[in-house]
Write a protein that binds this DNA or RNA. Structure first.
Lengths: 186, 186
DNA sequence: TTCCCTGCAAATTTTTTGCAACTAG
DNA sequence: CTAGTTGCAAAAAATTTGCAGGGAA
C-alpha cells in the first residue's frame, strides 16, 4: 500500500497522530473499537477519521470523500462510506439529517449533545442546547415508559442574517442573502 | 370559477366526497389551493388525498401508492409522488423522516404540531406535544434572532411494550418483542 | 382551445453490495 | 497464513424528470 500523506516519516501509520493532532483521544477510542471488534487499522481509516475530525461541518459521505481525495486520490468512495459507518458504531460520529436528501455526519465524541436551528434560506446552521428541553423530554418519555437512546431536534426557519438587510453577516451564516435560493432540493 | 366542494352529489368527481367523508375542510382547502395556483382538480388527486386522509399512518410515497392502487390500479406512482408534494404545498401534509431511509408524510391540517417518540426496536410511534418545549424553543430562537417556520423533534429509544415482558402491548406498538429486529436499515 | 395532468419510461441521485486482489495482524 | 479491507463496478433503492397523449377549465 503506497504511503502518501503529510509530514510523518517513521510510524507505520503516522498520519494518524501527527504532532499537530489534537485528536489523540478520538484515535485511541477508534483504535480500541477496532481491536475490540477484531477489525484492522488501515491507512485509509486513519486518514478518513482525521479528515472527518478536522472539519466541524456536517458532511455528507460524498463531501467527506471529496476532502479525503484531496489528500489521497486512491481512496475510494466505498471506503469512506463504510468507515463513516464504523465511526458511528465507535461513537465518534453521529448521523444527522437536514432534509436535504442525504445523510450527514457530525462529531459525537465529547461533543455534548446539541440540536440545530437550520436556516432554510441560506443553510446557516446554529447549534443550541437546552437543559430544560432535555429535562422535559425525559419527563415526557417517562410518562410513556419510553427509554431514550437518542434524539434529534431540528428547528427550521430563517436566520437573522438572512432577513436582515445589514451587511455584517454573523459567522454562522454560510451564504449571503440573495445567494442561491434553493429551498429544499436534492 | 367553478365552485365545488362540500357535500355536493352532482360533481363529476363524486368519489372525493362520499357521504362518509369527514374531510370536507381538507378537500376545500385542497381545491382552493388548486384554484389559487391555476391547477386542476382531477379524479386521481382527489383519490390520493382521500386515501391519505383515511389513514393516520406515516406513509412513504410507495406505501401510499400501494393503498391508492387497491382502489384504482391505473394510478401511477409518479402521480402519487407529485400529489404528495402538492399536499405539502397546500399544508395538508407534512414531510417527516424517521431515519428509515425514505421520506414519510403525516397529516398537517388541524393536526396540532406534535413530535415523536420512535421505538427503534419495534417501530412503535408515540406522538407527544409539550407547550413548555415549544416555548423554550421559541426563546432559544429569539436569542439568535431566528424566525421559526417549522420544527422536528424526534426522540429515539425503546418503548415500554418492547422491553417489558408483559403480554399486553399498548396499541401504539405495531410489532411484538422478538419480531423482526432490524434496527436502522433500508 | 389552452394549459395542465397523467402514466410510462428513463434518468438521477444516494446508498449498498459482490468480488478479486491486497494486507494487517 | 487467515480473516478483514479496499476500490471498482454494478446493483438497489429512492427520487425526479421528459414527453406524448388525454383531460379539465
Amino acid at each position: 500500500m503506497p504511503e502518501h500523506l503529510e509530514q510523518q516519516e517513521t510510524t507505520p501509520l503516522p498520519q494518524s497522530q501527527p504532532a499537530t493532532d489534537a485528536f489523540h483521544e478520538e484515535f485511541e477510542l477508534f483504535h480500541r473499537h477496532l481491536v475490540k471488534h477484531r477489525l484492522k487499522r488501515t491507512a485509509q481509516r486513519d486518514l478518513i477519521l482525521r479528515t472527518f475530525l478536522e472539519t466541524e461541518a456536517h458532511l455528507s459521505v460524498e463531501e467527506l470523500y471529496d476532502l479525503v481525495k484531496q489528500r489521497d486520490k486512491t481512496v475510494g468512495f466505498t471506503t469512506v462510506y463504510r468507515t463513516l459507518r464504523l465511526l458511528v458504531e465507535a461513537k465518534l460520529a453521529r448521523e444527522v439529517n437536514f432534509n436535504d436528501g442525504r445523510a450527514r455526519y457530525e462529531h459525537e465524541y465529547k461533543h455534548d449533545h446539541h440540536d440545530h436551528l437550520i436556516c432554510t434560506e441560506c443553510d446557516a446552521l446554529i447549534e443550541f442546547f437546552s437543559p430544560e428541553i432535555e429535562r422535559l423530554q425525559e419527563e415526557i418519555a417517562k410518562q410513556y415508559g419510553f427509554v431514550i437512546a437518542d434524539h434529534s431536534h431540528r428547528v427550521f426557519g430563517m436566520c437573522q442574517a438572512y432577513y436582515t438587510n445589514s451587511d455584517d453577516y454573523p459567522p454562522y451564516c454560510r451564504k449571503r442573502p440573495g445567494a442561491a435560493q434553493e429551498g429544499k432540493m436534492r
